[in-house]
Amino acid sequence: MRTDTERLGADPHGSAPTEVPDPASTPGGTVLDRLETVTETVARFAAYLGGVGIACLVLATVTDVARRAAGMTSINGLVDLTEVALVFVVYFGFAQAEVDKTHIRTSFLTERLPDRVRRVVLAAVWALAFAFLLWAVVRTGQSAADSFHAGESRASQSGVPVWPARVMVSLGLLGLALQSLMNVIAAVRGRRSGGDR
């Protein structure tokens, strides 16, 4: 089970993250390297957006608590808004969590395999994951479209629409699907993608 320890706050001194030299930035970078750079940049940017979303939710909730403590009314529809915003936060980070291998997994068997076998296994498994996730992207996308046409909204007086969150689900899964594809490519090329490079 690998967990990105740096990201879990491994260093009590709070030292700077060690910069891994990016192969794509070297002059000989291939199309695949560039593709990797692009997908990882998008994933990182999305994760930062998710982080900003989290910060907004913190501020909104604290404001609501403060208002209530001051005897004022709660912010109308905040709970509904929070639920929908939570979906955005979660799926914004889906791809980045694969780039930095935060998604929990175990390698106790695979790391004992000969390198060639391991690469074949990983390529096959991630190809399967890619196909599965693409199916999920299509199906959640369809349900987002249904939600949009039905005018689905939160079951309360706020009327917060649900379809943007359903669209976000589909996009987040697409991000994870693309990272799966990158994992296939990395396995075929004989190196690990993402943070484990």
């Binding site: 990105d4 990201r7 879990l8 706050g9 993250p17 990182r44 994760a47 930062y48 998710g50 982080g51 900003v52 979303g53 989290i54 910060a55 936060v89 979660v90 799926y91 914004f92 980070g93 889906f94 980045q96 969590a97 930095d100 935060t102 998604h103 929990i104 987040g172």
Partner: peptide, 12 residues
Amino acid sequence: RSLKETSSITSM
């Protein structure tokens, strides 16, 4: 950094 980590771990 904390926000980005939080985003990633939340997604996990």
